Amino acid sequence: MSFFRKLKESISTKTEAVTTKFKEGLSKTRDAFVEKVEELILRRKKIDEDFYEELEEILIGADVGINTVMKLMDDLRAEVKKRKIEDAAALRPVLSEKLIGLLDADDEEVGLRMAPSGLTVILFVGVNGVGKTTTIGKLGYKFKQEGKKVLMAAGDTFRAGAIEQLEVWGQRVGVDVIKQQAGSDPAAVMFDAIQAAKTRNVDILLCDTAGRLQNKSNLMEELNKIYRVIQREIPDAPHEVLLVLDANTGQNALQQAKLFGDKTGVTGLVLTKLDSTAKGGIVIAIRQEMNIPVKLVGLGEKMTDLQEFDSEQFVHALFAGLVTEEEEEVESDPEVE
């Protein structure tokens, strides 16, 4: 059975609604990346050095990242040599397979880490404007739909309007927000939120944090202080430290990942606004460069458009047109396998 048909069968156990969200959310990246690859395959037909150079440019243009592209090209060359592939069209499934390999890690936990019992604390970090508060709101909605009892902590006490913005989301999704006045100590807000969560038997506490400070304090020191307060109250918390990144910012998102990842013990990434960028390849670049799993992706503006990341769904959504073409070939020729 061909790779694309196996891929489709693998995701057939997942809900059609999720598959549709990935397809729609990644349409701009698909148009910019896969269509260019297709055009290259149809135009060049044979795999030679010029073919590799053009493919390299397309991958870099999709923000897959130079280091990752170099690794991918080396892998492709080795595979082409090993399988004795000459026809460019035969490279489609090989490329798809390699992309899934770059996004996956055998020893990695899939999905968000939750406390085995009691309260789960999820801390959100990232610069201002990346969609941190929106992500918290949408994740709060997701957990509520699953029947969980959720609380939010307004730990970004420095940005004007940040507390109010989280409150608006709280009202929208029906989740209470623990807050203090603007300019308060964020660690004190976290302490209050944990006590409230314990008292109310809450399942999940979602904690917002500042992306920039208006005073001379060091942001990383402030985040570490929050971390220590949470750990003092719940020794195995926070269960996730999620770095929120705006996919539109491309390589800047990668730099942010390096800055926060080194200093704040990030356990997972959230990539927002994938639906509005043609450079969705940044998912692959960050996954490779940082060796931190992508946990959630923003695929649209609706409440349900925040989805748990799935490498097979991601690659299937990118190569959806090729899967359809192959199915048509199989239907017209029953001997094709």
Score class of each variant (00 low, 15 high):
24 E>G: 00
258 K>C: 05
269 L>M: 12
212 R>L: 09
131 G>T: 03
208 D>E: 13
183 G>L: 10
176 D>Y: 06
57 E>T: 14
228 R>A: 10
163 I>T: 08
70 M>K: 13
216 K>F: 04
1 M>T: 13
147 G>Y: 09
190 M>E: 14
175 V>M: 06
27 S>F: 06
127 V>N: 03
299 L>E: 12
122 I>Q: 08
116 P>E: 13
56 E>L: 00
73 M>D: 09
332 S>D: 15
23 K>G: 01
130 V>C: 02
51 F>N: 01
130 V>W: 10
197 A>Q: 01
138 K>C: 01
294 V>I: 15
150 V>C: 10
38 E>N: 15
158 F>A: 09
48 D>N: 14
144 K>Y: 04
332 S>T: 05
178 I>W: 08
162 A>F: 04
99 L>E: 12
238 P>M: 08
17 A>L: 10
149 K>R: 15
2 S>Y: 05
258 K>F: 02
97 E>R: 14
121 V>H: 01
270 V>T: 06
55 L>W: 02
186 P>K: 09
58 I>K: 07
327 E>Q: 04
79 E>Q: 14
127 V>W: 03
23 K>Q: 14
142 K>I: 02
267 T>D: 10
268 G>L: 00
282 I>R: 05
246 D>Q: 03
88 A>R: 03
203 D>G: 00
210 A>W: 12
33 F>E: 03
245 L>V: 08
296 L>R: 02
219 L>K: 03
52 Y>S: 03
321 G>F: 01
81 K>N: 12
14 K>P: 02
250 G>S: 04
254 L>C: 05
178 I>K: 08
296 L>Q: 00
299 L>N: 12
297 V>L: 05
90 A>K: 13
245 L>K: 05
16 E>P: 07
197 A>V: 02
42 L>F: 11
143 F>L: 06
112 L>A: 08
309 F>A: 06
108 E>G: 00
148 K>N: 00
312 E>P: 08
307 Q>V: 06
240 E>F: 00
36 K>W: 07
1 M>W: 11
309 F>Q: 10
307 Q>M: 06
18 V>Y: 11
2 S>H: 11
185 D>N: 14
32 A>L: 09
229 V>C: 03
10 S>H: 15
317 A>S: 12
13 T>A: 12
181 Q>A: 11
208 D>C: 01
189 V>H: 06
39 E>H: 14
278 A>E: 04
53 E>Q: 14
283 V>E: 12
216 K>M: 08
220 M>K: 09
217 S>I: 01
211 G>R: 13
108 E>R: 10
30 R>Q: 13
